[in-house]
């Protein structure tokens, strides 16, 4: 079997996986809905019970859409960062981008009262949170980039990411000390990660950010391929390094910032998915990886969400806990068998 055939088969397999994950996600929840009824409500015909239709359209569909956006966005983010940093362990969560976003959001949610009322209410709108979150992740990414120039090894970068995490959580705890119970609750719920109750309006904002971010990534594919040989080689092959780096960083911040703003910091997905894609496809060609990461990311996020609220349980587990349960072992496994994987 040639590589192209193998890749085509894998893509078909991933497509099927994604569709199955989507349907299971829509069908399962605190109430299990038969698959036939799910399809009926989706395609406009009336379902057997009107409550089922209501659940699908107003609750599960937006949640599934959010899961798809989050999965695609964060995974692409991880793919971009791993190549940009020439580092297998780079990812939006591990390198502290999510912490940066948290800090931005914490300032908005808990610090807005310290400002004049007009500015405060402007900040606390969905747009305000998105902008603060993007700025937060941008600030951290810039700092990480500066540090990455000084120290090139994996361990150093990870420790720096960890330090940014501690640093931001320290500031967040100072902020929470001065904030009201209501604000604190809002922030805590946000930080546990929640892809549930997003309105279609918020999803539209999120989808727009995703679309722009993916478009920029698509135009960076050639540069990313060149960067696999290091910056000097890439430059010698005609890649405009400064412009490409700026584009990649913009896409990363837009994706991780907007997603974190709405869904909270989602752990490990961005790190694990690109690796699984590389492992499956055995290539580093970013054209292939881009498509693979999108499908795999969306599918895995849907699966994680399905697991977080299985039927028969009366509660919903925080999505962050599930992605960590899946993602953290992947990181450990990577550290142990690094050589053969990269």
């Amino acid at each position: 079997m040639t590589t192209t055939q193998r890749h085509r088969n894998l893509f078909i397999g991933l497509g099927v996986f994604f569709l199955l994950a989507l349907l299971t996600n829509l069908a399962l929840g605190q109430v299990a809905i038969p698959l036939k009824e799910v399809l009926k409500s989706l395609f406009g015909t009336t379902a057997e019970k009107s409550t089922w239709e209501y659940i699908i359209i107003h609750f599960r569909l937006p949640k599934a859409l959010t899961a798809i956006i989050v999965g695609m966005g964060l995974s692409t983010c991880g793919l971009l960062m791993q190549t940009l940093f020439r580092n297998p362990l780079a990812g939006p969560y591990v390198l502290g981008l999510s912490s940066g976003s948290s800090l931005g959001v914490a300032f908005v949610i808990m610090g807005a009262t310290l400002l004049p009322a007009a500015i405060g209410s402007l900040l606390i709108s969905p747009y305000g949170i998105v902008i603060a979150s993007c700025l937060g992740s941008f600030a951290v990414l810039l700092l990480v980039l500066i540090v990455a120039r000084k120290l090139r090894d994996t361990a150093g970068l990870l420790i720096v990411g960890l330090m940014f995490g501690s640093f931001t959580s320290a500031i967040v705890s100072i902020l929470s000390y001065f904030s009201s119970a209501e604000q604190l609750q809002r922030f805590t719920f946000w930080s546990m990660g929640n892809i549930g109750n997003l309105s279609y309006g918020s999803i539209a904002i999120l989808a727009t950010c995703l679309f722009i971010g993916l478009l920029i990534s698509l135009f960076s594919i050639k540069a990313l391929d060149g960067l696999l040989l290091g910056e000097n080689y890439a430059a010698s092959m005609g890649i405009p390094i400064r412009r490409s780096r700026l584009l990649i960083i913009t896409a990363t911040c837009l994706l991780s910032g907007s997603i974190t703003a709405f869904a909270g910091p989602i752990a490990f997905l961005g790190l694990a998915v690109p690796h699984l894609a590389k492992l499956l496809f055995q290539t580093h060609n970013h054209r292939t990886l881009f498509g693979a990461t999108l499908l795999l990311g969306a599918g895995l996020m849907l699966c994680c969400d399905t697991v977080s609220q299985l039927p028969g349980f009366n509660f919903t587990l925080p999505i962050n806990a599930i992605t960590s349960l899946v993602g953290a072992p992947v990181v450990i496994w990577l550290m142990v068998r690094k050589k053969s994987l990269l």
Partner: peptide
């Protein structure tokens, strides 16, 4: 150019690496 620096770790095959030379 052929430089002294190490090629970063990646999944590239020899063929894919050579093919990158066509980037311009």
């Amino acid at each position: 150019l052929v430089l002294t620096e190490k090629i970063p770790m990646s999944n590239l095959t020899v063929y894919e690496l050579i093919a990158l030379g066509r980037q311009p």
